[in-house]
């Protein structure tokens, strides 16, 4: 009866993508970020981060469903 539940399919959770080092550099350059902690943060203990197995310092791209724009892109940096 033990069914594996993948919370990533929950309708409240938008799509999370773990960015590679190169992609991360590109995003930082595009937004002119000087310090990585200028990004919004996401905790390492966050359930989604744990499923993605991201480490502190990694950048996560979030594709949100939006009422006003249908899709909007957001970035969060993983912190301890």
């Amino acid at each position: 009866m033990e069914t594996e539940i993948n919370i990533l399919n929950h309708e409240l959770i938008p799509k999370h993508i773990l960015l590679s080092q190169q992609e991360k550099e590109e995003v930082i350059k595009h937004y002119g970020i000087r310090k990585i902690n200028q990004f919004p943060k996401i905790l390492k203990s966050d359930p989604v981060v744990q499923l993605l197995e991201a480490k502190p310092g990694d950048l996560i791209k979030i594709i949100r469903k939006s009422d006003t724009a249908k899709e909007s892109i957001y970035y969060r940096v993983v912190i301890e």
Binding site: I7, L12, I42, V48, R76
Partner: peptide
């Protein structure tokens, strides 16, 4: 087993944050 968890919802946003993460909490 009977409950479709993928659509279920609670009005306690802290619970959403701890079970589904901060982005889901934002939506909630």
């Amino acid at each position: 087993e009977e409950i479709d968890f993928m659509r279920s919802y609670t009005n306690n946003v802290h619970e959403v944050a701890s079970v589904l993460g901060i982005e889901a909490a934002r939506m909630a």
